[in-house]
Structure formats: C-alpha cells, structure tokens
C-alpha cells in the first residue's frame, strides 16, 4: 500500500483524478471510492446507486453519495454497462468509510472499450495528483 495525505492507495488499482478506483477482472471493472475520497467526504450516510443495466460514460456521474453535510457525485472510471451494484451500501453506506477498497465497492461495470483504461492514473500518478491538489479546492 502507498500513502497519500495519511490515506491508503492500493498499488494494484487504476485511478481517476476525481478519486475513484477500478480493479480490472477480465472485461469487468469493480469500481469504488478511494480512501482519500472517503476521508474527505467524512461519514457517508446515503448512497444513490445506478440500476443494473444502466450505461456509464467515462468521467460522467453514475452514482451519488452523501455525507451529513453534503452530496457528491461518483464518476464512472470507464464507459460500459452496470452488471452488479453493491446493494449492501443502501443500508450500510458507512462501509465506504470503513473499507473503501473492499466491502465499500460501489458497482461492477462491463466495459466497452479497454483502451479507456489508458486514460486512468496508476497508483503513483494518483498519489502525485493528490499531493499536488490536496487542500487547493
């Protein structure tokens, strides 16, 4: 595990600049919020998930999470079709805080263009990006 601003970054995942991660398994990507993202959001109390079968577009919002204080969009790391959602989050959204890279996963997406993965950051690039932008917005 790498670290940035006191939060963990898994070397084996790919990242967006908006702090989502994707774990590629064949032609499906499991997606979720990074540890940094959940820490910035603070206690997550509500999620609005996409429906299974919905289409996602890379870098477009596909879910919403809310803390007590505010609502935030979750951006799809890849374009494709939602094949599974983490329904456990509906009753226990705090799993995103507790285990962002594990039980706090958000959805699984069957991606349409593996080439899009090249647009994403690797762990080191993500750490550099957060180091540069943290506290600036």
């Amino acid at each position: 595990m790498l670290e940035v601003v006191g939060t963990k970054v898994d070397e084996n995942l790919k990242y967006t600049k908006t702090s989502e991660w994707i774990r590629v398994e064949g032609d499906v990507g499991i997606i979720g919020f990074t540890d940094y993202a959940q820490n910035e959001l603070t206690d997550i109390v509500f999620v609005e998930l996409p429906e299974v079968g919905a289409e996602t577009t890379q870098n477009e919002p596909c879910a919403v999470v809310e803390s007590v204080k505010t609502a935030a969009d979750f951006y799809a790391p890849v374009s494709g079709e939602v094949v599974e959602i983490n329904e456990a989050l509906m009753d226990n959204p705090e799993k995103i805080n507790e285990d962002p890279f594990g039980e706090g996963w958000v959805a699984k997406i069957k991606f349409t263009d593996a080439g899009e993965l090249d647009n994403l950051l690797d762990a080191n690039a993500y750490v550099a990006h957060i180091d540069e932008t943290h506290g600036k917005h």
């Binding site: 603070t42 206690d43 109390v45 803390s67 007590v68 204080k69």
Partner: peptide, 10 residues
C-alpha cells in the same frame, strides 16, 4: 468543521 465526525458529535 468536525472533530470525531458529525454523527458521533451530534
């Protein structure tokens, strides 16, 4: 804005 977390503090 918070210390231990809004729900905990509330």
């Amino acid at each position: 804005m918070q210390f231990t977390g809004i729900p905990d503090e509330h």
